[in-house]
Design a protein around this nucleic acid. Sequence first.
RNA 1: CGGGGCGUGGCGCAGCUUGGUAGCGCGGGUGCUUUGGGAGCACUAGGUCGCAGGUUCGAAUCCUGUCGCCCCGACCA
Length: 658
Amino acid sequence: MQCAESRNRASASKHHTGVNAQTTLAGSALGQWYGPLTSPFLAMRVSRLMLVTLRDDPAEAEIVSHKLLLRAGYTRRISSGIYAYLPLLWRVLQKISQIVREEMNATGALEVLLPQLQPADLWERSGRWAGYTAGEGIMFHLTDRQGREQGLGPTHEEVITTLAADLIRSYRQLPVNLYQIQTKFRDEIRPRFGLMRGREFIMKDAYSFHADEASLRETYADMDGAYRRIFARCGLRTVAVEADSGAIGGSASQEFMVTAEAGEDLVLASADGRYAANQERAVSLASEALPLGPDPCQQLSTPGQTTIEALVAAHGFDPSQIVKVLLLAARFADGTVQPVLVSLRGDQQLNEVKLANALTAVLADHGALLEVAPIDGAFVERWSLTPGAIPFGYLGPDLADDTLDQKGKAPGVALTSAPQSPVAPPRLERHFLRLADLTALDLPRFVCGANQADSHRVGATWADLGPLPQTVDLRAAQPGDRCLHDPSQHLEATRGIEVGHIFQLGRKYSTALDATFTNEAGQEEPLWMGCYGIGVSRLAQAAVEQNHDANGICWPLAIAPYAVIIVIANLNEPLQVKLAERLYGELQSAGVEVMLDDRDERAGVKFKDADLIGIPFRVVVGRGAASGQIELVSRVEGERQDLAAEDLLTCLMQRIRP
RNA sequence: CGGGGCGUGGCGCAGCUUGGUAGCGCGGGUGCUUUGGGAGCACUAGGUCGCAGGUUCGAAUCCUGUCGCCCCGACCA
């Protein structure tokens, strides 16, 4: 299939007017968008590549990988969070896809392609339509000409589970694992960093179905292994971490992080390598609290001391002796607005993700959690609460429910939400949900607000404060914390880019969408499910973030758009052109993915570009061409090697396929 | 959504405070010279300053609105 290019090689003139195989759009005959690389894509003349490299960093890019992908001509922004994949990047994406495909297939997973346009009623059945389309929801949605609502798939649980409900009847068909590599649409609150967080991006997503949880665990472990092989084959350094399941739901989940400074996630890991988790999820041992003196509880005048810092400065307390109280309001899909009092030890920070999970679990009846926001003056006004009833800055865990009483207007009159809102109108609960982190509840005696302005209590005990709040793990683990598995170990922080995530979903979606099978005993039961994602386009950029130097990208060989670039140093030297063309043909024939820089540019320009676009091996055909001598340069090590043209193929093959 | 910043030839920027109808570098084209790490010289094409109003004799510049893009945040009372 590479014959078209071979034929043209002979006719390509010095001015490169010959039509190359690449321009015949042979690729479209592949049929599959994300299909494997085939021979028409084996080689490329740079003069035909529409390659535009930039000298200056584009103003739109902030992080190095984004700058390099733009400068080296891999991508262009079309609008915020939406990018075109140019020819070189498309090859990278196809290579990554192919590695993913091979490893997925090796586990017995089946490739499919599911619709991106998905009917609202599917999402209503799973209970996610409102949450995904209203407010902070990320699903692009539209109404078709029949007036039916449709969403653009941000993920495919609903579709795949519906298919499973249709197709899976018996335990004899199980387990199965289906995957696809496809464009996803997510209307991100804030797209950023190019392909890192786009609104349209390429993802591999897989969904497995099982007769029981043990089988799910088995496939989950298979996926863990497959993912490790995929990232290793892509040449990436990754770390697998415990993760929060987030909006997808379910129980166990693990993320795969490409370690890089520009990563959006914070990973906390122990030096012994036995524990690693996303900070959202991480657990650790808090430091011991300093004990407070035995004096009985008494009021302390603390005018203007509304922060932990001020209390500490004025009275010499240690932050660990204080219970701080955060006042928040959680809004749910059914319109409920639930005031929440969170008690934390003064030296600890709230982990919002843990809080959101706790709220979702405790108040499951109210549907999806849409928002958690602080209660402040604006909130008091909005809900016509008694002004001044809530003594901000002096809150105690026992703040009375009657501070939520309304003054004046009848409930809800002045504050209905926009009439066209798809979500139920908000309705304020008139009592607090009281939660406390274990580190706060463990304090025998502590300092806390007195629920009146300018006053705290010293030596309070939980017994003094009425009913105990619900105990939940709410504190954020921090770098330096002691580890649970071995208190002599401490958590260390690394930044990471999440490129993969695997979940044990359980039966959440199968139950909601009535996807059942008949078990061995002849009874119907919901399928067990797992899901497994890889951000293919994000992975490409993460690879750049992890593999670059001052001169440009240094692609790992396995995902480089081409393995080799042959540079003709001086196009006016017929001997050089002739030798380069000969080597170009030889490498193609040997199946090497090779590009030929046949542009009429000075050598320096071509060297710079070769470095910038990051091709792993550069062959320079220059002055030595007359005597059949060429130069082989490795992009990463920069090592140069002079050799006879006849030895190039052998030498390269050793490097490329050791 | 809140905060901050930015929109001026293809790209990166200056000009704006103190209104007088655009400038620099790179890039593009042509020619000559040069030819192993982003060449030199000459000539040349290309923008009416995001868009819409307004003020003014006159607006890239001042005012209002609007659109787009980037960054931080959307928890710590």
